[in-house]
Simulated scan of single mutants.
Amino acid sequence: MGLTFAATLTERGFDVSFELAPGETLAVLGPNGAGKSTLLTLLAGLLAPTSGRAALDGSVLFDVGPGRRVLTEPRQRGVALLAQEALLFPHLTALENVAFGPRSRGEHRAAARARALQWLDRVGAGDLARRRPAELSGGQAQRVAIARALAADPALLLLDEPLAALDVAVAPAVRTLLRDVLAGRSAVIVTHDPLDAFLLADRVLILDGGRIVESGATAEVLTRPVTAFGARLAGLNLVLGRASSTGFTADNGLDVPSADPLPTDRRLALIVRPGSVTVSRDPAAPPGTVRIGAEVDDVEHRGDLVRVHVAGLAADVPPADVVALGITPGLRLFVGFRHEDASIYPL
């Protein structure tokens, strides 16, 4: 039956509804203050909604409205929350931490410890069973925390930025582990990293201002974004506009020919990768390309490239070209791309 969720929280301007199929992983993304943490705390039972109803596999998590107020206690929801920090009990060993969930449900101590050891082995932490949290590295502690969450056999696993507190050298291994243990398991993962969404999630939901602004299959949302935030996550330029007699006319004045007919009854989006955008002092566009001129808004270093922002487009440029062209904020510059490097689709 999966998860059905609909809730409002008036004081936070939160109003979100969605469904999650059994065994499906949903990635929730959005800027700070978008409502991601509110969503998780409502599901976990740490916060009560102003109104709404949520049910997990047919069991009501909450049902609040005129004349009714059902709030199932957190420990009775079948929901486990994995936070950014491992939050292990400092006085218990890794084995005892993982066995805590089964024991709290009334499982016999020996059976709970056996289950805990199975999960520690599953997450590659079986040799850490006798260690206390103070003796674990960050990556080891997070592995134990994952085992603890799953040993409770939750119907729904909630993950709140589970890799954010990990060293960049450790995060890829833990991400691979999560990919394995989440397979076929119902989960909601809040993240700022689009890589988490690509590798872990079946679907993506993007929040902004307490509302859903984009949702759908992961590949669809992160390759055909419809909002500026979604485009930034996907590493793409997004320009909005409408169909014209020759193709696509963007809000910034850019005209892009299209061999295919475009719908005239709705807004259109054009996406192009920053690496495909060129910069020049010359306004003339070579055959098969388009260009638009404007003052440089910003220049930012990004590793071995420099990202130049002009007319709502970002271009990744080698540092030598930045020096040769004398690119600084305020300089008038022309940016463009080849027709075939852009994709246009209706919103």
Rank of each mutant, 00 (worst) to 15 (best):
F14N: 02
A151H: 04
I212Q: 10
R179W: 00
A80T: 01
P257H: 10
L233V: 09
L95W: 06
D180Y: 01
A285T: 12
T25W: 05
R103M: 02
L156T: 01
V98A: 00
V204P: 03
L156Q: 05
T38K: 09
T50H: 11
K36M: 01
T176L: 11
D208S: 15
L178F: 10
R130P: 01
L207M: 11
P74Q: 09
P22T: 03
R68I: 11
T328W: 13
H192R: 10
A54K: 12
H192G: 05
P90H: 07
R224Y: 09
P22G: 05
L166E: 06
T38F: 01
P261M: 08
D298L: 14
N32Q: 12
V98E: 00
P22A: 14
V64N: 07
A173T: 15
G138C: 05
A125R: 01
E135F: 06
R113D: 13
A164N: 00
L195W: 13
A149C: 09
W119A: 02
E96K: 09
H339L: 15
F5V: 04
S276L: 12
G288K: 09
E295M: 08
L29W: 01
L61D: 04
G253K: 14
G124T: 09
D208L: 05
S37V: 14
G326F: 14
F89Q: 02
D15R: 14
A165V: 12
P286R: 10
I344N: 01
T191Q: 05
S244C: 08
D298Q: 10
N97E: 06
A99G: 03
L233G: 06
Q76L: 14
L29K: 02
L56N: 00
E135C: 12
V279T: 04
A21C: 12
V144D: 05
G65N: 07
S59G: 13
A311S: 15
D341L: 03
V70Q: 06
V299K: 07
F198T: 03
E11D: 06
A164L: 08
G216K: 10
E300I: 14
L195Q: 13
L325E: 07
A151W: 06
L333W: 15
A155V: 02
L200I: 11
A114H: 10
L236H: 04
G30Q: 03
V64H: 00
A284I: 05
T191K: 06
H91N: 06
W119V: 01
A169D: 03
S276V: 03
L236T: 00
L81N: 08
V317N: 00
A219Y: 07
A116I: 03
A27P: 03
L195A: 15
L178N: 01
E214R: 13
V174Y: 00
A285I: 12
Q118C: 00
D167I: 13
T289L: 10
L325Y: 13
A21L: 11
R75P: 10
G139H: 12
L238R: 02
V28C: 06
A111W: 12
D208G: 08
V98W: 07
L40M: 11
F337E: 00
M1R: 09
P263N: 04
R273L: 07
L128V: 06
L222R: 06
F248V: 10
V226R: 15
F89R: 06
V213S: 10
G209L: 11
F62D: 00
G210L: 12
V213P: 10
D298V: 14
G106S: 05
L158W: 08
T4Q: 13
R105I: 03
G78H: 10
H309G: 01
S276D: 15
A86H: 07
V28D: 04
E340H: 15
